[in-house]
Design a binder for these strands. Structure first.
Lengths: 216, 216, 216, 216
DNA sequence: TATGAATGAGGTTTCATTCAT
DNA sequence: CATGAATGAAACCTCATTCAT
């Protein structure tokens, strides 16, 4: 019976290894981002996936292996998008503004990514250190930034002598903090940090901060 | 040999409640900062204190109560020092530079504080929300900053129209990130973030970033 | 040697969920009846079952869940037997004597049931309140009694105007007390309450008490 | 200052040993009756008394000693009142009705006593066995009953051949059950067992049950 | 390949009791 | 007499992982 299989089986159903993997990763990403590594429960993840708990161990070996895979996937995604930003057609100032704005937006819209990075830092990046894919994954962003900065210096709109890693760090820090420290900051200062207006306002401050730092 | 200090018995000595409390808090601070809330083990903390495990529950009720106390103490400390910075004698620019520099230094030298705040954010600030002392503890920093900024605007050295919360957030974000994301950032970009030179360099960048943002 | 009984594996054998459950329930029943809810130790129960302690939590969630299951099973059992008494063929007087006698005997022979009910009353019946099965389980006894009483009134051997709940309560109280208060009563009055002779004597008193109450 | 001490110091205050003892006993009675022996907490009792926890151990040695004292006090009280009933002036029927009614009322109004006896039975009366005062305390009730019964038989209103211990047991069982099994019984049968009307109704049934049993 | 059942190690918390002053 | 501080033992429960089918 039933041999008229649908073209797109539900993810995680029988005999779709890649679907099973993706299904587990998606659930695990949400769980680790929400509760942290130690706080996340393998049983909770297992209860939410479409297959059985055994599959987690089958595909990812153990809880740590699962977390490493989740991290890799999260980093791969942001770098993939960054590479496709296509800043070549823009002026150095516009390009830097665009890159900064994108970083801010991406992190705001992908709180899971931010929280996973926090979690990994709490664990001293031991999982990340174990992954070979990581470094190669992340060099691209510096190349993109270096291109823009060089062009800006050449055109005389950016001052010389700045380390692009500093620019990237500033950009990341301001974008990251807005998500990572949202809970404590808004609790302490009773500050709205999630409304569309708050988002747009702070985005503008961040972009301006970066631009003013490189300006002549 | 130290019989000249009868007023301050060694922490953890019998029948020195305040000493026992402080001893537990100190150990717990290190443990929570190192492993996170879920990752920290009450047994590990107990093994390191000068008294018995039972005292943790006697003074702090449970693991969460202990964490709340640790958080409160950590916040209280930074705000106490901030209040004593005495920026009144400095020009607005020097005062802002000093405040920014202090924030950067304090967080660099007190990684425990930074990591505790990360941990609390992973937990959506639920413990902080439970503490009444928190808000009152933290208003002072904004008042200090507001004073400096007003003076700068009045003297014509700062542009008008900036929300001091934005300045504080930028200052905090740049200082915080340098510690919070140290592990992943230096792993990915092979960047030295801990040497005295790296510290001094980045400190300079951060101060300059803030000053350039408020400059006319 | 018992390969003729493949359908009923030994209780507690691996991969026999129902057996494991029954095994745990049996041990827990004895333990709770013997020591009360607070006095019973999960570790003691665990030491006596054929599987590991973890299984208690796997099947019953926690100590309270286990106690609720034990209570349900105990009530279910007495009502099941009561329903099978088949009093229809007897005269009203004989039927009432038989029902009273059965109640007395059942409780005498099932001290565990009596003690579990005592324990539950000490705890204000909170566990019983939590169980939906309880009420439906227990209505049958009143129906049986109502039938007998109606017949007796119709035949003129029982006086009219009695609430059958009162009859049931009297019957239960006299039977229950003989077990529930055995320890204090025999200690205070140095009264034999356990020998076959004492059992038969008191059984006769109880039956007569009930019959005399309903007699015209 | 303060040397004008009030004539009646609050119970449990300094240098009033008997007051301290009574205060502890009163609190402990309520606590043991409410939670059972294992369920009661020494710390809870200590928190409610007017003095310190140390006093519990000072006066009663340990938790069991405290419970024994609570039990003795509870039994002493009911027997003391029983002795003062003064049934001599009444006819045998009236006297038996009065004694039965009193038993029912006393237990209804002193749920703590009933619950303590339940608790002691759960513990197989080991504490009661340890107390020498117990037996002597409790003989009186049988003497009182014996007197009434003898008079009734002599006057021809009671049938002969009944063991008064049986009468006492029936009387006690019916009175006791109404309190001891109130929680489960009313939960299962949705029966009001606490209103003044319910009390009066059941009291009547109980008295009638006893009278009918001894009637010729 | 897939699953519900099973587990040992270790986690947090509570308890009655004693100690130091 | 009186008290708050202190404790070891043991209680309940959870965890990531593996097993049997």
């Amino acid at each position: 019976m039933d041999h008229q299989l649908p073209a797109q089986p539900a993810p995680g159903r029988t005999h779709d290894p890649e679907g099973v993997r993706r299904n587990i990763l998606a659930i695990a990403t949400a769980e680790f981002a929400e509760k942290g590594f130690s706080g996340a429960r393998v049983d909770e993840i297992a209860a939410k996936i479409n297959t059985s708990k055994r599959m987690i161990y089958y595909y990812f070996k153990d809880k740590e292996g699962l977390f490493v895979a989740v991290l890799e996937e999260a980093y791969a995604r942001i770098r993939r998008i960054e590479r496709d930003l296509n800043l070549d057609g823009l002026s150095p100032v516009d390009a830097l503004a665009r890159l900064t704005g994108f970083t801010f937006e991406y992190q705001s819209e992908n709180a899971d990514f931010v929280r996973l990075v926090m979690v990994e830092n709490i664990h001293h990046a031991v999982h990340l250190a174990r992954s070979e894919r990581m470094q190669s994954l992340n060099v691209s962003v510096l190349q993109v930034l270096e291109d823009v900065y060089r062009r800006g210096v050449a055109e005389g709109v950016f001052r010389d002598g700045i380390d692009v890693v500093d620019i990237h760090m500033t950009m990341s820090a301001l974008s990251f903090f807005n998500v990572s420290n949202r809970a404590t900051f808004s609790a302490i200062f009773k500050r709205d940090m999630v409304s569309p207006e708050a988002f747009t306002r702070r985005r503008q401050v961040v972009v301006e901060t970066v631009l003013r730092y490189v300006a002549r």
